[in-house]
């Protein structure tokens, strides 16, 4: 029962990653692609949690935390790059945007 439900949710999550891959390739603007990348990262995190439950191991929890942090940092860096053209700005840049 449990294994069947977990396998079904793995299939559904794979379909979801495939769909957001379509938006990543076809998105007309760059923020579309960033939203799709963020979604892919979060869905990958959920997939790893389901795989950890299937294999009954706690070894993958570090990877869950790491992917969560990396997806957020990637989204933030991309958004700042689009908005201002720089990722990290020093104090001088604020005077002459």
């Amino acid at each position: 029962m449990m294994n069947g439900l977990l396998l079904a949710s793995l299939v559904l999550l794979s379909l979801a990653i495939l769909g957001s891959m379509f938006r990543l390739l076809a998105g007309p603007s760059i923020p579309d692609r960033i939203a799709a990348l963020d979604t892919i990262g979060i869905l990958l995190l959920a997939t790893i949690a389901v795989i950890g439950m299937l294999l009954r191991t706690t070894a993958y929890f570090d990877i869950i935390l790491l992917i969560g942090i990396l997806a957020f940092i990637g989204t933030t860096a991309f958004a700042r790059y689009i908005e201002r053209g720089v990722v990290l700005e020093s104090g001088d840049d604020r005077e002459h945007p």
Binding site: M2, G4, L5, S9, L12, L13, A16, G19, A36, A46
Partner: peptide
Amino acid sequence: ESVIGIVVLIGALISVISVIGLI
């Protein structure tokens, strides 16, 4: 066990619905 499996399945279904919205 069944309740936890159903919770996980609901989460996967919500993810699929959100990706349909994304497309």
